[in-house]
């Protein structure tokens, strides 16, 4: 039986680990390579690196980080943040990323999803969606709207419609990041996660809001997610990766327990 996955997301700025609260107020919290290695040895199932560097030399810094991590971490490695072209995606893949996350650039130019899927395979293209709650309207019948540019810019696009279009264009997986919950530690946006997970046939990763182990349990059961993404919970040492997996396992969620 397929296990549910625990994924840790590392936001990287200028080669350093950072963590944001509701996408602003980021602060450095250490060396991404060291953290990645420690999580890997503690049983993490998958790693996501998100490049939040603003400077123009961002790509080279990020490629160095990815390469250094890929040398010593032998689990799937996913990278996103500023991927705008197939060239960006293939550079990151050569550096050692398995999967490539596309986000804002795909909203602005949906063909990017299909281009990446053709170049590196559907299963390696992750559509990462930043989503906020809005009033139900004709433009947003699901009551959830896509935002881009790190959560700052609403685009008036319905999240459910975009998830389905992303799947049709060739995305192999969805990250459902609820920005209302991001960094709050109050729990994932379960209704949103379940809504999208039930609508698509590709795996869905719940993201944003994890603060306590039961939040992960909720995302993987009521939220219908295939994987739960954590950041603050593990970055500040509040919980260990192995501890979270043990908790989920004890509550009957199928997890990988041998590593």
């Amino acid at each position: 039986m397929l296990s549910k996955r625990l994924i840790a997301c590392l936001d990287v700025r200028d080669g350093k680990l950072a963590k944001s609260v509701k996408f602003v107020d980021t602060r450095d919290i250490g060396d991404p390579v060291e953290k990645a290695r420690a999580y890997y040895l503690d049983g993490l199932d998958e790693l996501v690196f998100y490049d939040i560097t603003a400077s123009s030399d961002r790509r080279n810094i990020m490629l160095d980080v990815v390469e250094a991590v890929a040398e010593q971490v032998f689990i799937p490695l996913s990278v996103g943040g500023g991927v705008r072209s197939v060239a960006d995606a293939t550079d990151l893949r050569l550096a050692g990323a398995e999967k490539i996350n596309v986000n804002s650039a795909a909203v602005q130019r949906p063909a990017l999803i299909a281009e990446c899927a053709n170049a590196i395979g559907n299963q390696n293209v992750v559509l990462s969606m930043d989503i906020r709650r809005v009033d139900v309207s004709d433009a947003c019948p699901s009551g959830y709207e896509i935002v881009i540019n790190g959560g700052r810019t609403p685009v008036g696009r319905d999240a459910l419609a975009w998830a389905l279009e992303g799947e049709r264009l060739g995305a192999g997986e969805l990250v459902v990041n609820a920005i209302d919950a991001d960094g709050t530690r109050d729990g994932y946006e379960l209704r949103l996660t379940a809504l999208l997970a039930e609508a698509v046939r590709i795996p869905v990763i719940a993201s944003g809001g994890a603060g306590r182990p039961e939040h992960l349990y909720d995302a993987l059961t009521a939220g219908k997610a295939d994987a739960a993404l954590v950041a603050s919970m593990v970055h500040y040492g509040d919980y260990k990766v192995s501890e979270l997996k043990q908790y989920l396992h004890d509550r009957g969620v199928k997890m990988r327990m041998c590593w």
Partner: peptide, 26 residues
């Protein structure tokens, strides 16, 4: 429909016949 395709993630590999390459798998 809840069974996603591709089969993506970690799953148990159950040895049904001994092989030198699988000797460490438990």
């Amino acid at each position: 429909p809840e069974l996603k395709i591709p089969h993506m993630g970690w799953n148990e590999v159950r040895v049904v016949k001994p092989h030198p390459l699988l000797a460490d798998i438990e």
